[in-house]
Design a protein around this nucleic acid. Structure first.
Lengths: 342, 342
DNA sequence: TATTAGCACTCCTCTTAGTTGAGTGCTAAC
DNA sequence: GTTAGCACTCAACTAAGAGGAGTGCTAATA
């Protein structure tokens, strides 16, 4: 176990390095108010902390820098909760000033404000549309052979997909069909729609309408390409500010990663509540070995979740980001839950 | 006027510099097959071309580099049309392989393929939604005080906006209202909707429904935030490949510019057909002083336009990009016009 | 025994000087 | 008009040296 003094020194080093991005030397540490012992003592302790794997040197005679293990320890044991400044709170509140809660709009705004307040990059996942339930299903024909299928969900989200109509399909048939579909689909969650269509509804339609096969098939293939939850970014180029990303290649790799939906999705831990911190190589992605990712979830209505991620260097201001995410998570959950529709 | 020899030398220099990104020296030029005169002669000509403003030196004893004026001349007078390779054509055709034409999907794919083929950044503007016409208007109530308004346009595009319902609004009233709105709005273009709502339709509704004022007002404010045409990007980080963008700040400025819708919009020349090339400072934006932008438009249906922009360094492969855009513009126009609905 | 002052040592960083090579402009010869 | 030749320029690279921040170790101190 670490002694109190070691804890104290580790804390000072991490805090200092987070602010300065410079290796921290013993002299510098000794100047801090809370430190009462001499540089020599500190050097001894630092040597021990290095042996234990919490610190690293950039070269033989440099100051110390926290290792990943050091950050991990800091995050797990030394992270005193921090209040956040009323200005920041105010800015977060400003997201919710407007009257009507349009989920997408709020999330977009949140992404921007989070990136502004943290000066890192923020990624917000919108609600998992797949779990929305159908409120209304309708079809609008565009021409003799094409139509748009529209699904409005209980949360006011609208999905639409074009699909091709079987030849010689009459308006009357279409109406009949829409009625049947509406009867059967309302209340079904989006991810179950195509199963439902293929198994249950196909049989029913076949009794009432010509070319139901074609129709359903066309509709199924349209609903198959399932709609991913939208992803919103804030401060994509904030990384450029960080001295550790003055290397073009690193920045590029991360920006490229953020263009790939699947990669971005894998940054999140679905179904785990609370705040999660992944430091450096704890992220599976090679591109992220110099980054830390802090994620959390917020609830939208009763059983849906959105997610937030902040991406920064491993030398991230964990304290502040955690505090901000805590507030954000609560506020978003509250906003989305009180105004939700049934 | 430039002599033939000067033209030839200018052409070689620009071509060479576009490929190599290195200042071009007289010796190097003299080695080209088509060049029959000696380095000394070339040096003399280059000195003249520099005096005329077509070339620049990076330092006193360096080779020459085209100036903006040089590029401009090259683009205006020396750009022999180039065929493109059948592989590239094939790749472009692959965009249109799929059966059903979903505008957004095709544009997204085009953006990616263009950036891949050019190795620059591509920006595609979707159709100008404001000019779509209403095909069907509907309202789906979500709860007692909120509803979604949905507009399907003639091109199969779907716009939707949440808005608040006046208190104690009955389903019957809503239906009546939607019927009236549908009668009046079908065929109206999106940018005219709110005018139409406020002036003409309000009067009619007031005769039939309670709280028409509130309702229309709410609807108007929802339709006011007019939907911009969507913007699709390809190869956002391709710039990192260009040696002239090894400076973080330049890249950052451009990436930031691309996050700002209004800035991006101003890269385009609406209502001008053909291919447009803006070189360096010919772009108004300061951020783009090292970039050239090549834009063109394609038609969607009869009277709508989308636009394409390719952004690269001033040392851009104009010949190739122009050729690719030519093909792309034709193919997109064709694809969107043959399948359009009335 | 724990702490600290002192000191030799390391190694990054910055500066200076020197070398190389690609390229030019100019002059004089062809 | 063209070209060979030559002196000159300057970026890019390399090497050497000074300065300084920081360390580890040893011996003195409380």
């Amino acid at each position: 176990m670490l002694t109190n003094r070691q804890l104290q020194i580790l804390q000072v080093i991490v805090d200092d390095f987070i602010m300065s991005a410079q290796p921290v030397g013993s002299r510098q540490i000794s100047k801090k108010q809370e430190i009462t012992f001499s540089p020599a003592t500190i050097r001894n302790e630092m040597a021990d902390l290095e042996e234990l794997g919490f610190l690293e040197k950039t070269h033989t005679s440099s100051g110390r820098v926290p290792s990943e293990k050091g950050y991990r320890f800091y995050v797990d044991h030394l992270l005193s909760p921090q209040g956040i400044n009323s200005r920041d709170i105010q800015q977060i509140q400003s997201i919710f000033n407007e009257r009507l809660v349009e989920v997408e709009h709020i999330i977009r705004k949140s992404a921007n404000i989070l990136s502004e307040l943290t000066s890192y990059t923020s990624i917000l996942l919108g609600p998992d549309v797949q779990r929305h339930r159908v409120k209304r299903f309708s079809i609008v024909p565009l021409s003799s052979d094409a139509a748009v299928a529209i699904i409005v969900t209980n949360n006011g989200h609208v999905e639409n997909r074009m699909f091709s109509l079987p030849p010689n399909f009459t308006a009357a048939e279409l109406e009949k069909m829409v009625n049947i579909l509406n009867d059967r689909l309302v209340g079904v969650s989006l991810d179950e729609i195509h199963k439902k269509l293929e198994i249950e509804i196909l049989a029913i339609l076949q009794q009432h309408v010509r070319s139901a096969d074609d129709f359903i098939h066309s509709l199924v293939s349209a609903t198959m390409q399932n709609s991913e939850s939208k992803i919103f970014y804030g401060g994509k180029t904030n990384m450029f500010n960080q001295p550790e990303f003055h290397d073009l290649n690193k920045v590029r790799m991360i920006l490229d990663l953020m263009e790939t939906t699947s990669q971005v999705q894998s940054l999140f831990h679905p179904n785990e509540s609370g705040i999660h911190i992944r430091i450096g190589s704890e992220n599976q992605q090679l591109e992220m070995e110099n980054c830390s990712v802090i994620t959390t979830t917020y609830s939208i209505g009763e059983d849906q979740q959105g997610a937030i991620a902040i991406i920064g260097p491993t030398r991230m201001d964990y304290k502040r980001v955690v505090a901000l995410l805590e507030v954000m998570r609560m506020d978003l959950s509250q906003a989305f839950t009180k105004n939700r529709s049934d």
